[in-house]
Design a binder for these strands. Structure first.
Length: 444
RNA sequence: GGAGGGAUGGCCGAGCGGCCGAAGGCGGCGGUCUUGAAAACCGCAGUCCGGAGACGGACCGGGGGUUCGAAUCCCCCUCCCUCCGCCA
């Protein structure tokens, strides 16, 4: 009988082969060595018990065949003697099996909450302050200078939005509570236009590489789907859960897109699987109440267009680079200054090996706002999700996954409302976006 | 919500206590034939775990049970399909 379909995460064999390497790698993100050695010890115990179980079962199988033969030969006495002996062996085997089950479950639970090892190329560091800025871009081509923004641009977007009737946060709160923005009129139109624009860009126009397939996944998913990407069990408090039907509201399209290939064995020529999806994203934001929550800075529900790829190991970093180019291309067309951060080991998300964040400058807020996070997960998620592919020379391998936002709209809109605000208070719509908002060239 | 029927390898589909890791087909790979391709014919080939290997074990939706022995029998769960009801 098989066991749970929820597999571990970190490759146990890697742990076995190179425990010191894993200890060193996880230390970079603050995991203490004893937590890793506990995993190694558990693995040794699992294998010892499994060997005992397997030997017992082999005996039972062999004897059972003899029972069949004895019966056929009409030797009832021999058959009964063998049956009795086999029964004893079977009991020993099932006791060993019970120990295996307990130990395996213990190991699995620990692995499920053990994060991925950072890529050696990820910068050293303990937290956000240590992230490295790898490049930045401004619409003028002049190096970024906070002082270069005019007074008319230094108005926070919630004021700009209120001025032009783009957002109705009070009524959003009336309907659903705070941090549930309600968009109206041209604001709603702008949001819809951005989504169509990005989807069309990624799924039809060239850009680097062949196009991405447009997907519209369900925004509510089962527990197994949330576990596959690493969002459960560790981050349960950040998720909306529908008790009655045991469904979870997705925090990002990454969740359903990754599970598209869950438990599948893919042909090599099907790779890379390149998917693009718009979805609403739901986040409880437990513990972040009052912090950076004004206007569109942080909300419980927002729209995002996501790019997600399932691929072979050697394709992963190229795809990560492609997603970066695509996400940055949108920001350039929107004329927004941005910078790219190479996240340090200590600030990396749970499942990630290497992540680049893209942040736009918000002159009204006076800060950089994260609008995209582009991550390479190695085989961490694919191992959980059971996504494998065949190899050209025969055999199989666990796939790699890569994804990134392109883009998360509320903060992009925030930056647009501020950076594109004119002397007269109106907001200029960037030309590339105009065909998607009915030719509208200004708000207000 | 009510009533039935299903879930088997990469895919489709047989099997319904031991000779079944599992017929057959499709798809894949390697040949033969061909100027080349197609067709036809012949052959090879499941996945996972442990092991240097020999080899051993697991896997027929998931979990549990019966049995010397389970894809096959029993129980529970999940999912899918059909019909009825309701409905954007």
């Amino acid at each position: 009988m098989g066991r749970s379909t929820l597999r571990p995460v970190l490759d146990v064999r890697r742990l076995r082969r190179d425990p010191d390497g894993v200890i060193t790698a996880l230390a970079r993100r603050g995991i203490a060595a004893p937590e890793v050695t506990a995993l190694v010890d558990l693995d040794v115990a699992v294998r010892a018990a499994a060997q005992e179980r397997d030997e017992g079962r082999a005996e039972v199988k062999r004897m059972s065949k003899e029972v069949g033969a004895a019966r056929k030969a009409g030797d009832v006495a021999a058959a009964e003697r063998l049956q009795a002996e086999s029964r004893g062996r079977g009991e020993v085997a099932s006791q060993a099996d019970a120990r295996v089950a307990v130990l395996e479950e213990e190991l699995r639970q620990l692995l499920l909450v053990t994060p991925n090892t950072p890529d050696p190329a990820a910068p050293e560091g303990a937290g956000p302050q240590d992230n490295r800025v790898v490049r930045s871009w401004t619409p003028t081509g002049v190096p970024f200078n906070e002082a270069a923004y005019a007074d008319c641009q230094r108005v926070p977007h919630w004021e700009v939005a209120a001025q032009h009737g783009l957002l109705d946060l009070e009524r959003g709160a009336k309907l659903s509570g705070s941090m549930f923005p309600l968009w109206r009129g041209p604001g709603a139109r702008l949001l819809r236009g951005l989504t169509s624009w990005a989807l069309d860009r990624h799924t039809t126009d060239g850009g680097p590489g062949p196009e991405w397939e447009e997907i519209r996944p369900p925004p509510l998913v089962k527990t197994a789907t949330m576990v596959a990407t690493g969002h459960l069990p560790k981050f349960e408090d950040d998720m909306y859960h529908l008790e009655r039907d045991d469904l979870w509201a997705i925090p990002t399209a990454e969740v359903p897109l990754t599970s598209l290939a869950r438990d599948e064995l893919l042909d090599p020529d099907a790779l890379p699987l390149k998917m693009c999806a718009y979805t609403p994203c739901f986040r409880r934001e437990a513990g972040s109440a009052g912090r950076d929550t004004r206007g569109l800075l942080r909300s419980h529900e927002f729209d995002k267009v996501e790019l997600m790829a399932v691929c072979a190991a050697e394709q992963a970093q190229g795809l990560q680079a492609e997603i970066m180019v695509r996400a940055e291309g949108l920001l350039r067309d929107l004329g927004l200054a941005y910078r790219v951060l190479d996240l340090c080991a200590g600030d990396l998300g749970f499942s990630s090996m290497r992540t680049f964040d893209i942040e736009v400058w918000s002159p009204g807020v006076g800060d950089w706002l994260e609008v995209s996070s582009v991550s390479w997960y190695g085989d961490f998620q694919a191992r959980r999700a059971g996504i494998r592919h065949r190899l050209e020379g025969g055999g199989t391998a666990v796939a790699h996954t890569v994804n990134g936002s392109a883009l998360a709209w509320p903060r992009v809109v925030a930056a647009m409302l501020e950076a594109h605000r004119q002397e007269d208070g109106s907001v200029r719509v960037p030309p590339p976006l105009r065909p998607w908002v009915g030719g509208l060239n200004r708000l207000g």
